[in-house]
Nucleic acid binder design. Structure first.
Lengths: 169, 169
DNA sequence: GATAATTAGTTAGCGAGCTAATTATCTGGA
DNA sequence: TCCAGATAATTAGCTCGCTAACTAATTATC
């Protein structure tokens, strides 16, 4: 009964989708990285800058490290690193939160704001170029499938025997 | 004529898809990492081990660093690092290529092979659990859209003004 | 056959993610 | 009130990507 051994020759649809997902992510990274490099920043740094810019438009003077951590889906310790480099580049500044001396507000400097505006003038076009391989209707379908998958993953707290990173946060 | 300013309020479908793509990737990583940690390896290390295992099944005794680099979509220098750690862990070994003394074959050790077999017994189930948020039919559609996007990105050699990493390879 | 150019892999050094541990501050209950 | 525990951010130390520069070996060219 050779059925006892899983048929490794043919992969499941989930496996095929999984592999393609990882592969395309690599390709997207490779397409975006030189784009950001033109502005002297990295994709991660753009994530911080974009969020700060949005916050400004909504009237906030800055964002806490913890808020950036949640929005960017990275740990606070990682935010510290990215902010360090942005600060060194003069694009953001750290400011004490008067109501809570443990917390710090990260805000855009004038230079940072100017850079964001400059990136934004070409940003849509860049993303369209990356996703231009899909018709708008396909982009919508992709977004829908990803959103569904995302909701599933948010619910998936423990997948194996471990908890995703557990309550350590 | 307020049209001169791009309507930043409403994002394009491409932008929405792009953002969701990045977000879901983060979630997938978070789901897989503790799974691999159970076996004492990382996702990157698994990539090397899985490729070596496949190569073995196809009759090869090992794979060159350059071949691993192509298959994993990472630069040779990065392969060196992952292989270093796998070698230190006793899961792979480096072996000279008798026909070309510049090249090296990376092959599984007995321990490495045993680990791969052990991971494989639960691997399908793990991936199904991650992608279980989608029906099989949706997984197929997702795969199709990603493959299409992937083909587009492979063709996209220069996106901005830069070449992806240029001819330096 | 000697030398130039190419190729395979590694090293060095950086950015960015992670966890675990540390510091400083805040807060709630005895 | 004061102290224990929670919370915000940082630091230290790891993996893993990257590029640039290097070494060693092969191939091509004159």
């Amino acid at each position: 009964m050779s059925f006892a051994v899983p048929p490794a020759i043919v992969d499941s649809e989930a496996t095929r989708a999984f592999r393609e997902f990882l592969r395309v992510f690599g390709l997207v990274e490779r397409a975006m990285q030189p784009y950001f490099a033109r502005f002297g920043i990295s994709g991660s740094q753009w994530g911080v800058l974009r969020n700060l810019h949005r916050a400004e438009k909504e009237g906030a003077t800055g964002l806490r490290v913890s808020v950036l951590s949640e929005r960017l889906l990275i740990r606070p310790a990682s935010v510290t690193g990215v902010v360090d480099r942005l600060e060194r580049a003069g694009l953001v500044a750290r400011e004490a939160d008067p109501t809570d001396h443990r917390a710090k507000f990260i805000r855009l400097t004038k230079e940072g704001r100017q850079l964001v505006e400059r990136v934004l003038t070409s940003h849509q076009r860049q993303i369209e170029s990356v996703f231009g391989g899909l018709k708008v209707e396909e982009q919508v379908r992709l977004h829908g499938l990803l959103a569904r998958l995302g909701r599933h993953l948010e619910g998936l707290k423990s997948v194996g025997l471990h908890t995703v990173t557990s309550e350590a946060n």
